[in-house]
Amino acid sequence: MEKIYERTKLIQADKVSGFCPGCMHSTIGKLIGEALEELGVLEKTFLITGIGCCGLHIDYVRCDNTTAAHGRACAVATGMKRSRPDSIYITYQGDGDLASIGLAETMHAANRGENITVIFVNNGIYGMTGGQMAPTTLVGMKATTAPKGRDPKEHGYPMHMCEILNQLTAPYYLERCSCNNPKNLMQTKRAIKKAIQNQIDGKGFSMVEIVTSCPTNWGMSAMDALDFLEDNMLKEFPLGVVRDRSKEE
């Protein structure tokens, strides 16, 4: 029988993911692996994971990796890529990591136009630490540190990282995607592949923001979480290309 599908070589063959049901981290890991394989750079790739659930990937991937200190993934990637420009450096960060504690590192790596690929997983909540409010938590959405829901008077509003980075001149490519249905999933893969291709071509800073769900900390079933994502998250975080300098060339 002809083999028409094979698991990406990025993921260790004997590993079963420990991510919660309905979590999209494992899906994104698969997409990154497929993109790297198709581009032929899997074996010269280094993964820099952020703190939190993102870091669980280190147990599943076969590629070289480190866990950066909370929020510092873009700084770590800066040091690595400058030192070894022939290798591929991908950061993999959540919303608390990239947009809160690591905001400075993210902004400045983007502003320097570092030739790295940033995968930003935005589920609007802190996962591993247990459902605390994130910079991307929706207004009214409950969190363990905002028990009455996010109140703009007290907590401000969700931060839109693609749009914030779009204020800078240097970033090359910024796109927001999701994995909530097959169509969006395929687009996410195309975006990841493009962001890695940009690094191979030396184009500079590329970030793919992926809006995902966290059924566990949202307090929903996986299916309800998908609906919530579609009806609420994507209203706040509209999908699409925010910046693509290749269109200007």
Partner: peptide, 21 residues
């Protein structure tokens, strides 16, 4: 690299050291 902070700078060095430089 002039880092955006002391924290960023030391983490860049973590990265470069990790890459074998």
């Amino acid at each position: 690299v002039q880092g955006e902070s002391e924290i960023a700078s030391v983490n860049m060095v973590y990265g470069a050291g990790c890459a074998g430089e």
